[in-house]
Design a protein around this nucleic acid. Structure first.
Lengths: 151, 151
DNA sequence: CGCTTAACAGACCCTTGGGTCAATAAAATA
DNA sequence: TATTTTATTGACCCAAGGGTCTGTTAAGCG
């Protein structure tokens, strides 16, 4: 489990941005501009979300991406699983390579419980929670003036 | 904070091996053989422990390394700090890059508490605990018990 | 139809952690 | 003193995550 990667963080931010938008569909370019994530890389991340069925995409003129479900039905854990393709197995808290269920380290049970707690948190937390939580700072205007909004 | 690196795990295993040994001093080569850690790399890891003052070293004939203090006085956190030279700052649970004390993510407080709990655990746990915990399997006879042994 | 547009896909780059290898420095001993 | 021995140091190697760049495909529009 560990902590979510920077890339997963991008996915969450992007999806939150998409969910908070008034328009159902957005271009990757717009999301990149609004979140400050590098566009080329975000495109790759989004692709994984498409494959996982979390977002729908449409190519070409007036294309873009949109959520395939309601934000409340998209869990953070799900996003993480979609992005973190072939992730390494859970690591021992103490970094010991031979630590396992049969051959445990002194912190094994403690860490197992902690991981479990985190996992619960991630399966409980949905995209809707993220959006709601970020709502205030969105209204505050944010740091990036969002050049596209002016149209 | 996150989880300790594989390298820190090596350091812990090596120090535990050293602490459990009947002889006060051991050669890096011996520790490598006993723990299964690659000798050349272990030498580098040990070096950091020397610099941090956790182990003393003596070069040349009949040289080797030894603990500078009693195992009960060496905490896991301390070992981690010694090994993890210029470590990156704590990351957000959700991987969000802009998450900070002022601009928190929905899991920020939860994760802060969890990290704190882990930190306490690591400052409490000492090398002596590791040794004690591993004592049984040490008596069981070597690293790979070789399943055939039962015969 | 051709043009434009935006998602998609692949090759490539850079940094970091883990790891090897060869040379160097100091301590004991013959 | 020469030799052996072991820690120490620096150069280099490899894989993975994060990131860029250059196309290629599929939509809409005139």
């Amino acid at each position: 489990m560990n902590v979510l990667s920077q890339t997963t963080g991008y996915a969450i931010e992007a999806l939150a941005c998409l969910a908070a938008s008034s328009s159902k569909s957005m271009m990757v370019r717009e999301i990149a501009a609004e979140t400050g994530i590098a566009q080329a890389y975000l495109a790759k991340v989004v692709q994984r979300l498409v494959v996982a069925g979390i977002v729908d995409s449409k190519r070409g003129y007036r294309g873009g991406i949109s959520l395939s479900r309601s934000p409340g039905d998209i869990t953070i854990k799900e996003i993480d699983d979609a992005v973190e393709i072939n992730r390494p197995p859970d690591r021992c808290l103490l970094g010991m390579t031979h630590c396992s269920e049969e051959r445990a380290c002194p912190a094994h049970d403690y860490w197992k419980k902690t991981r479990e707690s985190v996992r619960r948190r991630l399966t409980t937390l949905t995209l809707a929670d993220i959006v709601e939580f970020e709502a205030p700072r969105r209204h505050a205007g944010g740091k990036e003036p969002s050049p596209l909004e002016a149209g």
